Amino acid sequence: MRVYLPCTLPALATAVEAGELGPAPLTGYAVTPALIEWYASGDTEELEYVALTEAARASLRMLAADRADGVPAAPRRVVVAAEVPERAATVGVDLEERARVRLAEPIPLAKVAAVHIDDEYAVPDIEAAVAALPAADEGDDDARFTVDGAEAHELMWYATQEIPELLRP
């Protein structure tokens, strides 16, 4: 099963150092039965894109949390795509997040298939979205528009051997 794990660049650096994504439990996003039922007309590629998009939204929140904790993090969403056994993922029942799964164990980097990261041109919009998150959560429509604007940027695909280059300052 392909699982999309929200991340940040500092968290990715920590994972590389540790040799795994963790600690468990981890929240990820995947093509779940609830997602298939909800998006009945979608093929596998479309469903995986939905799961990737959900993980990118979660990455934006992780980035905001890092910033709130004083962690210097570049304003780029990061999603790690990993292959895990289907039995390793517990599917949630939250209708708001039909693609959400929980993983009870850390994910070894050997299971990582690719990394998806915002390109540099997305940085101003991601920065604005991070700043707008608190107001968006309180119902401000303009702030929601700004946060949603981050999704206008497609995440770039990188092979696992490119991760060290992505982590260079």
Score class of each variant (00 low, 15 high):
3 V>S: 00
3 V>I: 12
3 V>N: 09
3 V>R: 03
4 Y>K: 04
4 Y>M: 14
7 C>P: 01
7 C>N: 12
8 T>Q: 05
9 L>G: 03
9 L>T: 06
10 P>C: 02
11 A>K: 07
12 L>N: 12
17 E>L: 07
19 G>P: 08
19 G>Y: 09
22 G>R: 01
23 P>W: 08
25 P>G: 04
26 L>T: 12
27 T>P: 05
30 A>V: 09
32 T>E: 10
33 P>K: 15
33 P>R: 10
34 A>V: 06
34 A>M: 14
35 L>K: 06
36 I>Y: 10
38 W>A: 13
40 A>G: 14
42 G>N: 12
42 G>K: 12
44 T>M: 13
45 E>Q: 14
47 L>H: 12
50 V>E: 15
51 A>I: 06
52 L>R: 14
53 T>W: 02
54 E>A: 14
56 A>C: 03
56 A>L: 04
56 A>P: 01
59 S>Y: 13
61 R>Q: 15
61 R>L: 15
63 L>R: 12
64 A>V: 09
64 A>Y: 09
66 D>P: 05
67 R>D: 07
69 D>T: 01
70 G>M: 05
70 G>W: 05
73 A>T: 12
73 A>F: 13
74 A>F: 07
75 P>K: 02
76 R>S: 00
78 V>P: 03
78 V>A: 03
78 V>W: 07
79 V>L: 02
81 A>F: 02
82 A>Y: 06
82 A>H: 08
89 A>M: 11
91 V>A: 04
93 V>G: 15
96 E>F: 11
98 R>W: 07
105 E>Q: 10
105 E>C: 00
106 P>M: 09
106 P>T: 07
107 I>H: 09
108 P>I: 02
109 L>V: 13
110 A>C: 01
114 A>D: 15
115 V>A: 01
117 I>G: 00
117 I>D: 07
118 D>I: 01
119 D>W: 03
121 Y>Q: 11
121 Y>I: 10
122 A>E: 02
124 P>W: 02
126 I>Y: 06
130 V>Y: 06
131 A>L: 06
132 A>T: 09
132 A>E: 11
132 A>S: 05
133 L>W: 10
135 A>D: 06
138 E>V: 01
138 E>F: 05
139 G>A: 05
139 G>V: 09
140 D>L: 01
141 D>T: 13
146 T>V: 14
148 D>R: 10
148 D>K: 08
152 A>R: 12
153 H>T: 01
153 H>R: 03
153 H>Y: 15
153 H>L: 00
154 E>I: 00
155 L>Y: 00
155 L>D: 05
155 L>M: 08
156 M>A: 15
156 M>S: 13
157 W>R: 14
157 W>A: 00
157 W>K: 06
159 A>F: 09
159 A>Y: 08
159 A>E: 12
160 T>F: 03
160 T>W: 10
164 P>K: 00
165 E>P: 00
167 L>P: 15
167 L>I: 12
